[in-house]
């Protein structure tokens, strides 16, 4: 064979290499442009494209401090964490119990309940806004504007998918383990905590990664249900986008500030994310 071989014996495919390098560059350039621009002064960014920055200069780090303090993205950043972490953990807890019931218990209307979960996975969350604004608003519970409103909403919206994912995973666990625990005198509650929950951690981590990204990146819920001092970095960034001209140089830095955490989650937890998606954790 005249073809060159890779270490594992497969032939080298020049066409694949060239195409994939081109696509990778194409996919990365937009983000790279943002990164470079965020380190350029306002005048430099207005005078030439970011790809000229390497020859024309105009570098600064002031945009970041300006966006963090001046545009209040620092507060938004903290708010995002306060919103996203509980909104990631709480649904898993609720969903895990439901998934356990769907997997290891028999009861009436079980299939009907599960089909309901599948059906509501597709329902657009837009249906919830008017009724939930009424319920959480001053004429209802009076929690609109507070963090708890978003925790409840994200927990509710994430629930169907979380139940679905965890149930899919739990049904791959051997039933015999649960049955022998029952024979040993364990209640369902004990079986859940001692056996099923620890064994389901990979699936929980997978869902947690995806849910965290959704909540962090969410615009709608945060915009509608948080008052301005509690609002997230994404809403702050959207407000910056609306006020072009004035803070154009802060916008790029702000965008990068909003991307840092999801990017970190992405880099560190990518394999959980992939596992979550391939096991059906796809938000409708």
């Amino acid at each position: 064979m005249s073809q060159r071989l890779m270490k594992d014996g497969r032939p080298v495919s020049p066409f694949s290499i060239v195409t994939m390098v081109l696509l990778s560059i194409l996919w990365t350039i937009p983000t790279l442009g943002l990164l470079v621009t965020s380190f350029r002064t306002r005048d430099a960014a207005a005078a030439s494209g970011w790809w000229r920055a390497f020859t024309e200069g105009g570098w600064t780090t002031a945009n970041y401090s300006g966006a963090w303090n001046g545009s209040d993205l620092g507060t938004g950043f903290i708010n995002s964490l306060v919103v996203a972490i509980p909104a990631t953990i709480i649904p898993i807890m609720f969903a895990a119990f439901a998934a356990y019931a769907f997997t290891f218990m028999d009861f009436r209307f079980k299939e009907l309940f599960f089909l309901l979960i599948i059906a509501v996975m597709v329902v657009p969350i837009q249906v919830a806004f008017q009724p939930m604004l009424d319920l959480f608003g001053p004429r209802g519970l009076g929690i609109s504007g507070q963090y708890i409103a978003t925790w409840i909403l994200h927990t509710g919206f994430g629930m169907p998918l979380c139940i679905y994912t965890l149930r899919n995973y739990m049904s791959t666990l051997p039933r015999s383990i649960v049955e022998s625990a029952k024979i040993d005198g364990c209640s369902h509650y004990q079986t859940f905590w001692r056996l099923v929950a620890p064994m389901s951690i990979p699936a929980m981590a997978a869902f947690a990664t995806l849910q965290f990204l959704w909540v962090w990146n969410d615009l709608l819920v945060a915009k509608l249900f948080l008052k301005s001092e509690n609002t997230t970095v994404i809403v702050k960034l959207q407000q910056l986008l609306g006020s072009q001209g004035q803070g154009a140089e802060l916008l790029t830095a702000g965008a990068f500030i909003s991307i840092i955490i999801p990017m970190l989650v992405f880099v560190l937890l990518q394999r959980f994310m992939i596992r979550g998606m391939t096991s059906g954790a796809v938000k409708g």
Partner: peptide, 8 residues
């Protein structure tokens, strides 16, 4: 890009 918000 999956990690990036629509706003970002």
């Amino acid at each position: 890009p999956m990690a990036i918000s629509a706003v970002g």
